[in-house]
């Protein structure tokens, strides 16, 4: 694999993303308002609760978790399934398939450019703001390093789940339906809407055996140094679980894609 070839794609992705500055600006602004909603809701929820700590989460923990989950969402969500299913439906996908590059790798590195931009433009500013507003409730130590590693793994897990789902579109020619199914399952079971700590015991046990938690819940718990996610209590186990899911999903999406692309029928032409 010639890495320079693929880095060029990433560069193109960065330039393309920066071209739509207004879009980025609108996203940041809209997110800010959205986060205010999150803040008010949970403030009211905790104010109505007799206890300060619910399921091991304080109000500050919950807010940091949810705000950074939203920031991670903006960073990770690349609407890959949307793009791919659209190009499958229109037949445009054939242009990409004819290129003398590995399609899956080609996609990954193009989207990676977007990831780089959104990381600096949305995730990092949000992180700084959260850090300042909560007066340093996030400890800046080794957990930060583990967090970065964990987010990188989350990116891979997320990308391959997307790719796996997008491949289904080769068979169904469904865009909206597949997307909405994927989105609701991933956002719910990864902890992006409600931290997994709040889930009822039985449901949580089931969810913990699924790959989705690797995307939001694991990195955020590592950052917040929750029990079971620190140096002493098993951060390495958590990272190992992420690696294992990464490998499984990479292999699965590769196999499914290679199997499916041979029987593809492209519309029009």
């Amino acid at each position: 694999m010639k890495i320079r070839k693929y880095l060029a794609l990433t560069k193109a992705g960065i330039i393309q993303e920066l071209h739509f500055r207004l879009g980025t600006f609108v996203t940041i602004f809209g997110n800010l308002i959205y986060l205010i909603l999150v803040y008010f809701l949970w403030k009211a929820i905790y104010a109505s609760s007799p206890a300060d700590t619910v399921n091991g989460m304080t109000f500050t923990d919950t807010i940091i978790y949810l705000v950074l989950a939203t920031a991670l969402f903006n960073f990770l969500e690349m609407f890959i399934v949307w793009d791919m299913s659209r190009s499958i439906q229109s037949g445009e996908i054939i242009l990409d398939l004819l290129k003398p590059v590995n399609y899956r790798r080609y996609k990954f590195f193009s989207y990676f450019g977007d990831n780089v931009v959104t990381f600096f433009l949305t995730f990092l500013p949000t992180f700084v703001v959260v850090y300042l507003i909560t007066h340093g409730a996030i400890r800046l130590g080794l957990n930060l390093l583990f967090f970065v590693v964990s987010v990188a793994l989350a990116l891979l897990v997320n990308f391959h789940i997307e790719l796996l789902v997008a491949t289904i579109c080769l068979y169904t020619e469904s865009t909206w339906g597949i997307n909405i199914v994927k989105e609701s399952i991933v956002l719910m079971l990864s902890g992006a809407t409600i931290p997994l700590a709040f889930f009822p015991e039985k449901l949580r046990t089931v969810v913990e055996y699924m790959p989705f938690r690797c995307i939001y819940d694991t990195p955020l718990n590592i950052l917040l140094e929750k029990d079971g996610y620190t140096m002493g209590t098993g951060v390495f186990t958590m990272l190992a679980i992420q690696v294992v899911w990464c490998v499984i999903l990479v292999l699965a999406s590769k196999a499914f894609w290679n199997f499916s692309v041979r029987r593809i029928t492209v519309n029009g032409g």
Partner: peptide
């Protein structure tokens, strides 16, 4: 596009179930 229609309807039902589930968990 029958497959798309069925999947979309299923997706709609699923989003509602998931929405309700998060409400219930809260």
């Amino acid at each position: 596009y029958r497959a798309d229609f069925i999947i979309s309807t299923f997706g709609m039902v699923l989003t509602n179930i998931v929405g309700f589930l998060s409400f219930y968990i809260l």
